[in-house]
């Protein structure tokens, strides 16, 4: 028979284990790289025992820390974004990148960049506008065929993605901008160009985390269908709109800072559901922590696999995520 406090206990176990994983990811992200530093050195840097003038300190604080922190926030955002879209659309294959939301966000960002807008708020708002536009188009395409119809939703997303890609390439081909290489690298998902000046913009993601966590229980009820949620006391329209706007906003901020990193929102919620079940009061914090750790590890691979260089992290996440997507699609059609 069920006992009370089970929720609190589960939450404590989940947060401490995934929190531990994130700490480990952080330590590895800070110590591994072209010049290897030991965990001991990293820990001493955090204690302030490391000489601030030393090379090790410069590597940790100026090169690696911003990058690992960016990976953590973007990873958490993308995983949570996937989780929310999956709940709202009741489709476990929905994800910001697959739905074309990231692509729309990239178009908005590129237009604003080419027009010479400042990164914040200019590029960020344009990127948010682009992603909202694509999201509404995809939902419009799938609407009327009921939200559960996974095929029309995914097809709409894939097509919007193709369209976004074409528009982006068109925009790039128009420019004589010397930054084309930079933009192309960014497009494939890149965590190396982060500077601490972008931090305030990135921190605007955190309130979105809070809003989504507050709506975790209504999200549980929404999994039972819109009518079921409504008769259980959920204001379906308001909750759906708040979640869509908050999620699209944070995803577009993540895209502005790190480009197109796909499939994190597919891989992480899928694994976590197998581990902790379907309750969003667990899944929301778990996705943030798990997604953060996952992207740090993927970035480690991205900067250590190619000999003497690095590749965009988006390539790593796609190499892991796309096969999983194909497998899930194949399994669901049987």
């Amino acid at each position: 028979m069920i006992e009370s406090q089970r929720m609190t206990r589960k939450l404590a176990v989940m947060v401490s284990s995934l929190g531990g994983l994130l700490v480990l990811a952080f330590l590895m992200g800070l110590s591994l790289g072209s010049s290897e530093l030991g965990f001991g050195e990293v820990i001493r840097a955090f204690k302030g025992e490391l000489d601030p003038e030393s090379v090790a300190s410069a590597i940790i604080w100026q090169i690696r820390f911003p990058r690992v922190a960016l990976a953590a926030i973007v990873g958490g955002t993308l995983a949570l974004g996937g989780l929310v879209f999956q709940a709202l659309l009741r489709n476990s294959l929905a994800e910001p990148y697959i739905l074309g939301v990231s692509g729309g966000s990239a178009i908005g960002a590129i237009i604003a960049m080419l027009l010479g807008f400042s990164p914040f708020p200019g590029v960020a708002l344009a990127s948010f506008g682009g992603s909202m536009l694509v999201l509404l188009l995809v939902l419009g395409l799938a609407a009327g065929r009921s939200f559960v119809q996974r095929d029309s939703l995914l097809l709409g997303g894939v097509m919007m993605n193709a369209l976004c890609g074409a528009v982006i390439m068109f925009l790039i081909s128009l420019t004589r901008n010397t930054q084309v290489h930079h933009i192309l690298f960014w497009l494939m998902g890149d965590l190396s160009m982060f500077s601490l000046g972008q931090l305030p913009m990135l921190l605007s993601i955190l309130p979105c985390f809070a809003v989504i966590y507050i709506l975790a229980r209504p999200m549980n009820l929404l999994l039972m269908g819109r009518e079921n949620a409504a008769v259980m006391g959920v204001n379906v329209k308001a909750v759906t709109n708040i979640l869509l706007v908050a999620t699209t906003f944070m995803v577009s901020i993540a895209v502005c800072n790190s480009g197109l990193i796909g499939f994190v929102g597919l891989v992480i919620p899928h694994i976590l559901r197998l581990m902790v079940g379907s309750d969003h009061r667990l899944l929301v914090p778990a996705s943030i922590l798990g997604g953060a750790s996952y992207l740090i590890f993927c970035d480690l691979l991205a900067r250590s696999l190619p000999a003497g260089g690095e590749m965009p992290v988006g390539i790593v996440t796609a190499l892991i995520g796309a096969p999983l997507f194909i497998f899930l699609l194949w399994r669901s059609s049987r």
Partner: peptide, 12 residues
């Protein structure tokens, strides 16, 4: 009918 694509436990 209640959809069960995202299955919860009975207690939940």
């Amino acid at each position: 009918q209640v959809p069960i694509e995202f299955p919860f436990t009975v207690a939940d």
